[in-house]
Design a protein around this nucleic acid. Structure first.
Lengths: 321, 321
DNA sequence: ATTTGACGGTAACCATTTACGATGTAGCTC
DNA sequence: GAGCTACATCGTAAATGGTTACCGTCAAAT
């Protein structure tokens, strides 16, 4: 038994000849090692749990792909759980993942509340936050600087001469895509000495339709904006179509910019100018960080902020005088 | 020990009073059941393996969501493995999934070769094919009828008076999205007495860019088609933009139709007419089928074909005389 | 002859489930 | 009321399929 275990696990203390014999027996008997038994004995499962808001959302799907690729590279498997940003469901899946003795946990998406922290604290294995972070900064995380990303987006509008800049925001309860991006918008206005106007901000739900709706509202204003900043690409694309459906043009009549750079941003007309967040890398770096933690390697900086980059395409123009 | 096991597993043979005492002890000690040990003893892991071509592809992401929802409903977890339609990688992950003692296996995407069958045959647990099937029809599967879907698509073009119909196909090596859809195209032409012309067919790779390229080719033809059928929505959208970039219009100058109905199909201008495949349902039904198989319930029809539906939107028009 | 290191076997251990048996209690019969 | 049966409850121990610490054996080197 022990010898078989050794050859299966590539332990060097086996004579090549007996190793060969074992392999032959394995072949002959169709033996397949039982990873569950192995997990029980070795206290390692080579699987990590990932809780994701919604795999059918292309942003998270892209992040997940990054996670999976790196996990694969280090011979880990992934248990994937959708939690829809519902706190109670998130806590539940964290617990079942921990019951399953995952070697590590990747938590993506939603707000990290005290209840989350409590659940995390019961964990004997490392946890990293991906595309989110906890307020206190006690847990390792990989994210972008949403506020600065939004700031940069609005700022490129300003540099193109715009001063009447509307925003299609997410809900302000959401710390990352919502609050932080909205705050970046305000800061950019402030830095340029532009007064903040409440009726130039609409709250959407990140989806296309809400972008369409918000833009309709702006089009109905007496004092229309000349540019709009959307918190997500999807809402930006909705806004573009809203404008086009009225017979107006982007960027001639309105400039549009947003944050994300989903694949679709380069599959619309005009090509969408946007601040790219490195989605694949968010996942990949988070997973890489987790592998280090699982191997108990010391990591220099456990709270990484990945750089964003504004991609100038065709939906932003200099303002018409 | 046995009593604890009984209360944890909701076995009725425990006095309510001792049950309560056990719960108190669990609470006090912060006990968390170990699913790995449970899996070893019970020979059940309540997890199913799913091998997927690419989770960052929106079609598969949507299917995966259906799978996960139903799995969740039946208290299964999902181990997700990307395999990129690479045979060798698919075989590998099938084996590691089986080593992990999954209770069932969901195989999506790529072609099912003899080697796949061989790997499947070593499995002691049920396997269902999702969005693909094996030639011999020996394994349970859930899919749509790609050929008829394509036939219907081309036929609505024909019913709108088109007779010069081009196709942007996938590779003919791919049995479902490639060969079957191409064959549906040919059949529809044949049924309408339209001669098949080789230079009206281009092979793409399912992606946007290849749709753009293929359409450029058609636009360069002396005898241009009046309509084009794309094997996937993404290529269709590429074609639309290719047309619009030349200053021409859809559907005035060209009608466009395709198969899939991804979310993006209703996020372009003009709204894309397409034959919808029920992606979420493909996953959900496949997973439901798998749960039945895992519970050893008898299932009436283990090879299900889900209906498709052509969604008339704005990219198809009657041909200009 | 002794030491050393490579090799391989023994058995404890991992945290559960489950078959089986022990115990106790209630109800019934006589 | 004794004795018996039946059942509910709970504990014991085997089983699950590996890993690994530890020890013994053997051949080669000293």
């Amino acid at each position: 038994m022990a010898t078989v275990s050794r050859v299966v696990n590539n332990n060097p203390n086996v004579k090549p000849q007996t190793r060969k014999k074992v392999f032959e027996a394995i072949e002959r008997l169709g033996y397949r090692p039982n990873a569950v038994a192995r997990g029980l004995a070795s206290k390692k499962t080579t699987t990590v749990g990932v809780v994701i808001p919604d795999i059918s959302n292309s942003i998270f799907a892209e992040i997940a792909r990054g996670i999976e690729d790196i996990a694969n590279m280090y011979h880990y498997n992934i248990i994937l759980c959708n939690a829809d940003k519902r706190k109670e469901k998130e806590i539940r899946v964290i617990n079942t993942l921990l019951e399953k003795q995952v070697d590590g946990l990747l938590f993506m998406g939603g707000t990290v509340t005290d209840e989350h922290i409590q659940a995390f604290q019961t964990s004997a294995v490392p946890i990293v936050l991906c595309a989110t972070r906890d307020e206190k900064g006690t847990y390792p995380s990989v994210d972008i600087d949403h506020e600065t990303a939004a700031f940069d987006a609005v700022n490129t509008l300003i540099r193109h001469g715009h001063r009447e800049i509307a925003m299609i925001s997410g809900t302000l309860q959401d710390p990352a895509n919502g609050y932080a991006r909205f705050h970046g918008y305000k800061k950019a206005l402030e830095a340029a000495g532009i007064e903040y106007q409440e009726d130039l901000v609409r709250i959407g739900n990140y989806r296309y339709e809400s972008g369409v709706e918000a833009m309709k509202y702006f089009l109905g204003l007496k004092k229309k904006p000349t540019a709009v900043f959307a918190a997500t690409d999807e809402m930006a694309i909705g806004a573009i179509h809203s404008i086009q459906d009225e017979g107006l043009k982007v960027p001639d009549d309105f400039s549009i910019i947003s944050v994300d750079n989903i694949r679709m941003a380069s599959m619309v007309r005009p090509l969408l100018t946007t601040v790219a967040q490195p989605m694949y890398d968010l996942g990949a770096v988070a997973m890489r960080l987790l592998t280090k933690l699982m191997k108990k390697e010391t990591v220099e900086n456990p709270r990484v902020i990945l750089p964003h980059e504004t991609i100038l395409r065709l939906s932003v123009n200099h303002v018409n005088k």
